[in-house]
């Protein structure tokens, strides 16, 4: 079935672009991982995590996530040229599966 998924080797730019979309897919997963992290914080001494620290942590992760998304969106948008309306396929190299 791999045969129908395009050529084995692609040009450097296309390759970079595919990895960029991979990054766009993986970024929220990293975010989820970091957001769920506080669940593990309950230490064995039974002490609860601190709201002040937890808040700072969450907002820091949040800001980092947004920054990353900003960079990814900019780069993905730049490569695709005019991606408006319903024409052909604005984001090539993607089979949506």
């Amino acid at each position: 079935m791999a045969a129908s998924h395009g050529p084995l080797f692609v040009a450097r730019r296309a390759y970079r672009r595919r990895r960029l979309t991979d990054a766009a897919r993986l970024w929220p997963i990293l975010g989820l991982f970091l957001f769920v992290m506080p669940v593990l914080w309950q230490g064995d001494d039974g002490q609860l995590p601190q709201t002040a620290f937890g808040g700072l942590y969450l907002f820091a992760v949040w800001a980092g996530l947004i920054l990353g998304a900003f960079v990814l969106a900019r780069r993905l948008g730049r490569g695709s040229g005019q991606s408006s309306t319903m024409t052909a396929r604005p984001w090539p190299e993607d089979r949506g599966e």
């Binding site: 970024w27 929220p28 975010g31 996530l65």
Partner: peptide, 16 residues
Amino acid sequence: LGPTLVFVGWWWILRK
């Protein structure tokens, strides 16, 4: 946080 993840992960679902 939930919506944040959905939007940051727009390439997965929202785009489609």
